[in-house]
């Protein structure tokens, strides 16, 4: 696995990249929450949310292809869970399509979950793709996320790729010995891999910790620059949040 899978574009130079992580977290989380609590009966608020997302994406200079591939991560859940809803939903008016009844309310539910999932997942991807991991963690820490999680996640991030590579090497060794993995009882092999992987990761952790404490690690990561919130950051939060909340309020009053 390429170690820069998530962070590949997080150090580009663009107006979005240079915003304070806290501003991006506040603005995009507001947009997600407002989007999720908007009733799906009206379609135009979602166009406004999507427009905000597209403007931020364009300003971020991230390759569109990269963003689109990462947005696809939600598709399996939508396909498995929600695609059947219009055919199964009872009550309310429905259209008759010969073999199937397509429920109008069911269609609205499917449209709602799909558009909300896509907009929210785009926001999360924009956040992580425009902010280096350390800065994002520091932003969360400044927003009072417990120290445990930011530190544990920092270690997790440093070692995810090492351990995934280890797992891939074990998988290759297994496959080269004619494992075909077609039946459930062959899960035992995966169990042995998981056990070995755990042992190796723990022993690596112990070595890493010893090395770190011999260099004076005291449980916290030192920070050199402490990003201050600038005028541009407040403007960004105000614009994104105000647009989203305004769209939501208009729906409420209509």
């Amino acid at each position: 696995m390429h170690h820069d899978f998530i962070d590949r574009y997080s150090r580009l130079d663009s107006p979005v990249h240079s915003l304070n992580p806290r501003a991006k977290i506040a603005a995009l989380f507001t947009l997600i929450i407002v989007c999720v609590i908007t009733p799906p009966k009206e379609w135009w608020p979602f166009c406004i949310y999507a427009a905000v997302v597209v403007i931020i994406a364009a300003a971020s200079r991230l390759p569109a292809r990269y963003l689109l591939t990462r947005v696809l991560v939600v598709l399996p859940f939508i396909l498995v869970v929600a695609i059947f809803v219009p055919f199964m939903h009872k009550g309310g008016p429905s259209f008759d399509l010969g073999l199937f009844h397509v429920s109008r309310e069911g269609l609205i539910i499917l449209w709602g979950v799909t558009v909300k999932a896509l907009i929210s997942v785009s926001c999360l991807i924009l956040l992580s793709a425009t902010t280096p991991f350390d800065d994002l963690m520091h932003g969360f820490e400044r927003l009072r996320v417990p120290h445990f999680f930011t530190t544990a996640a920092a270690f997790m991030y440093r070692y995810i790729f090492v351990i995934i590579d280890e797992a891939e090497r074990m998988g290759r060794a297994r496959d080269s010995r004619n494992f075909h993995g077609r039946w459930l009882w062959q899960a035992g092999v995966v169990g042995r891999m998981a056990g070995t992987l755990f042992l190796r990761s723990q022993e690596r952790a112990e070595r890493v910790y010893d090395a770190m404490s011999s260099r004076g690690f005291d449980g916290t990561f030192p920070r050199w620059q402490d990003g201050k919130m600038m005028a541009a950051d407040y403007v960004f939060i105000a614009m994104v949040a105000a647009t989203a909340i305004a769209a939501r309020l208009v729906v409420l009053w209509k």
């Binding site: 995810i160 992987l197 890493v208």
Partner: peptide
């Protein structure tokens, strides 16, 4: 949670994450 435990738990989290990528039939 002092000292050793957080790095250990963080690396265990990485292990769980990697183990979740092991698909089984």
């Amino acid at each position: 949670l002092e000292g050793k435990k957080i790095p250990l738990l963080g690396i265990t989290a990485a292990f769980i994450f990697a183990a979740q990528m092991l698909n089984f039939p």
